[in-house]
């Protein structure tokens, strides 16, 4: 606390201006004002220094830089205090142009489907229309696929029409297949087919893009 009550008479450094010599001062005034890059916690002090630097000069300059930078940080950055993470300060994005470590990632190679879709002008339905569709019967929005999806609509029926011919075929095949599993089997077939295509695309992309 005694730092607060220092008298203004104390000016041991002769050429330093009185504001900075004051031991409780929190302001820094320089002929050329400091510039900052707060995103990198960086301060530029363009004031020229003499050819030989004494350690006292270095200490005072460093103190002024620290004071000035901390002042700028505390006064311009929004500060939030949280009980768990402590007092956090939000920094602006850095200004200094610094080189990247690696070049920007290469664009992913188009999959066979993407190429085809582009050629045909097919748009992503999930993006445009969304996943939900309106069910006119129940007057509700239902998902096209997934839990309670539209694509499973016929599966829970308590009574099912049976095609005699197909039923016979299934019986011959054996393995306890019934009409009830027909919809699900079709769906699983589609999923497998899609996964196969996905693997193909990945393999193709690795072969094509791996060399560069």
């Amino acid at each position: 606390m005694e730092d607060l009550q220092t008298t203004p008479v104390m000016s041991s450094v002769p050429e330093a201006n009185t504001a900075n010599a004051d031991k409780s001062s929190v302001t820094v005034t320089k002929p050329i004002p400091h510039t900052y890059d707060l995103g990198n916690l960086l301060l530029n002090d363009a004031n020229p220094l003499p050819p030989t630097l004494s350690s006292a000069l270095l200490a005072t300059t460093a103190r002024e830089c620290a004071q000035s930078l901390i002042n700028q940080l505390l006064l311009t950055c929004p500060i939030t205090s949280t009980p768990t993470a402590g007092v956090l300060m939000t920094l602006p994005p850095p200004i200094t142009p610094l080189p990247r470590e690696k070049s920007l990632p290469a664009k992913k190679e188009e999959t066979k489907w993407e190429k085809f879709a582009k050629k045909k002008g097919i748009k992503d339905k999930k993006r445009g229309e969304g996943k939900m569709v309106f069910d006119e019967e129940t007057q509700e929005w239902v998902p096209k696929w997934g839990y309670k999806g539209r694509n499973k609509s016929g599966e829970g029926e308590w009574i099912v029409e049976v095609d005699e011919k197909k039923e016979k075929e299934r019986d011959e095949e054996g393995k306890g297949k019934t009409v009830r599993g027909e919809g699900r089997r079709e769906r699983m077939e589609k999923v497998k087919r899609n996964e196969r295509k996905q693997r193909n695309n990945e393999r193709k992309a690795r072969k094509g893009g791996g060399g560069g």
Binding site: L41, L49, T52, L58, A66, G86, L88, M89, L91
Partner: peptide, 19 residues
Amino acid sequence: TTTVDVEGLQLLISFFAGE
């Protein structure tokens, strides 16, 4: 980073170059 802990502001690395 975009956020920094105020407690963590405890190291200053300064560089000087005279004329």
